[in-house]
Every structure is written in C-alpha cells, then in structure tokens.
C-alpha cells in the first residue's frame, strides 16, 4: 500500500504532469452534469459510463491523475491520503471526512465497474446531502461541494443502475 503516498519522485513527475494537465482542464470530462451531489437525482442516463481497459490499479490511477489535473487547472491543494475500497451492489461505502466551512472541496473518484457507474454524495452531520456539481466520465467522477459548516461529514460512494458486480474504487479530494 505504500505506493499510495506520492513519492518525492512521484511528486516531481506530478508537477510536470500538472503543468501539462493545466491545458486539459475539466474539458476532460465527456459530459459535465450539473445537479445535486446525491449521486443520482434523475440523471441516470448520463451516469452510466463504459469502463475502458482492465487494469488492477485503474481506480487508483484515475483518482490520482484527476486530482493532479484539478490541482493544476483549478489551483487546488491535494491530499496525500487516498481511500481505496470495493463498492458492492448490496451497500454503499461510507467514508467519514472532516471538512471546513469556507473551503471548496472536489471529491475525486476513480473506479472500475464494468457497465455501471458510481454515485457520490456528501452528507453533513445532520445527514443532509450537500448540494454540489457532479462531473462524470468513463471510470471517474468528481463532485464539488462547499460545506456550510465545519465538522465531520460522510461521503457515500455507491453503485448506480443496480449493478450487481462489485466495483473497485479509489477516492481522494482536492481543496482550496
């Protein structure tokens, strides 16, 4: 698991990638969708996306890569920490995170779910979903939120479209 923390060399490479990625920006997404961060909300047709090649580290790679791109394009700071897990059809993954009011967060998920998509929602301490922007493309998605209050929030990652096969997912976030 050590490879999850970016190595010094990795950070340098990332810097080069970030410079290059600045030009890529968010147009990397095929069809940006606006809406609640509820990971569903009626946009199901746009949420299912084909997953390309089979790669055991695809989820990790997509999440890290996208975080680098966002940092470069949007002036965000990255986390060294990254969550990896499997999201099964019978239940979402819920990851607690401490968020601060005033900061803007973009949760970045890379995943490998053949024929399915993932939804991500951020809930505050009272269980209310935070409104936000959702962008999706094949094997990756981003949800941008601005917490109204500082405190423990919960990020729910779940399979969409009733997919039964478990999906490997990796999540990190950027902030500014």
């Amino acid at each position: 698991m050590r490879e999850e923390a970016p190595s010094p060399t990795g950070a340098r490479i990332a810097l080069s990638a970030m410079a290059a990625a600045a030009a890529v920006s968010l147009v990397d997404f095929d069809a940006p969708a606006q809406g609640g961060a509820g990971g569903g909300g009626g946009g199901a047709a746009a949420e299912a996306a084909p997953v390309p090649e089979a790669d055991p580290k695809a989820a990790w790679r997509r999440a890290r890569s996208l975080a680098h791109q966002l940092a470069a394009a949007g002036g965000y700071s990255q986390r060294a920490a990254l969550w990896e897990g499997e999201v099964a059809g019978d239940g979402p993954a819920v990851v607690p995170v401490q968020l601060y009011a005033g900061n803007e967060y973009q949760f970045v998920v890379g995943f490998d779910a053949p024929g399915a998509g993932l939804g991500l929602a951020v809930f505050d301490a009272r269980g209310r979903v935070l409104p936000g922007e959702v962008h999706r493309a094949a094997g990756k998605m981003v949800t941008k939120v601005r917490p109204a209050a500082s405190g423990v929030h919960r990020v729910r990652v779940r399979l969409l479209d009733g997919a039964a096969a478990p999906a490997a997912a990796a999540m990190t976030y950027v902030y500014k």
Binding site: R79, A81, L82, W83, V97, L99, Y100, Y173, Y175
Partner: peptide, 10 residues
Amino acid sequence: KISLPSPVEY
C-alpha cells in the same frame, strides 16, 4: 487516513 484532515486544510 483520508478521514483525518491535513493540517493545511485547517
């Protein structure tokens, strides 16, 4: 680890 914020976020 991701559950704990980085000092910089704070």
